[in-house]
């Protein structure tokens, strides 16, 4: 019995080391196979379940990742992952619901960024503009230029609407 436990532990450890190696090389198809080896002996391993979701998403398998989150009842923990899948599956209203119903205050940066992109897809440009101004004010990372480009896209869409004023883009 204890020998069996040892074998299982060794297998899980070896598989995790593979997951780590493949993921850092961005070989997510191989990483998924290693994760599956863990889940084969430890189907409830939360870290492994989380890894599998991230790998599937990196492989653009958003439908599969979304179903996997729901099947393994990770709706309450993998909020960002679930909402991002919905965003990419073009379920914008559901994505907004997932983020807002998580009731996180204050919203973590990654959910703020995603929520703002969802607002853009929903064509809620005024709310989106305010959200971007807030993110730009409070962030300092390597994506400032891209974020300003997005802000300009929001402003361009507002400018198309004759009933709305063209906003000042800071």
């Amino acid at each position: 019995m204890s020998k069996e436990t040892n074998t299982k532990e060794a297998l899980v450890k070896a598989a995790y080391s593979d997951v780590n190696k493949f993921a850092s090389n961005q070989e997510y198809d191989k990483a998924v196979k290693a994760v599956n080896r863990i889940l084969g002996v430890a189907p409830d391993d939360q870290t492994a379940l989380h890894c599998k979701v991230v790998c599937l998403m990196q492989l653009s398998k958003f439908d599969e990742a979304h179903k996997f989150i729901e099947k393994n009842r990770m709706n309450g923990t993998l909020i960002f992952e679930k909402a991002y899948c919905e965003y990419r599956l073009n379920k914008q209203l559901q994505a907004l619901k997932t983020i807002d119903e998580a009731g996180m205050q204050p919203l973590p940066d990654k959910l703020k960024e995603l929520r703002t992109q969802v607002l853009y897809r929903l064509e809620k440009y005024e709310e989106c503009l305010e959200a971007y101004k807030d993110i730009i004010k409070n962030s300092s990372d390597e994506y400032e230029d891209e974020r300003r480009t997005n802000l300009s896209a929001v402003a361009a869409n507002l400018a198309l609407d004759p009933n709305k004023d063209v906003p000042d883009v800071p």
Binding site: T47, V54, F80, K110, L114, Q117, Y143, A153, A156
Partner: peptide, 23 residues
């Protein structure tokens, strides 16, 4: 009007969980 360029910045936040205690 042309479709404005719009970047997906949320994807950059997608990360693997920490495997520190598993390795």
């Amino acid at each position: 009007p042309c479709k404005p360029l719009f970047f997906d910045l949320a994807m950059n936040y997608l990360e693997m969980p920490s495997l520190e205690d598993k390795l």
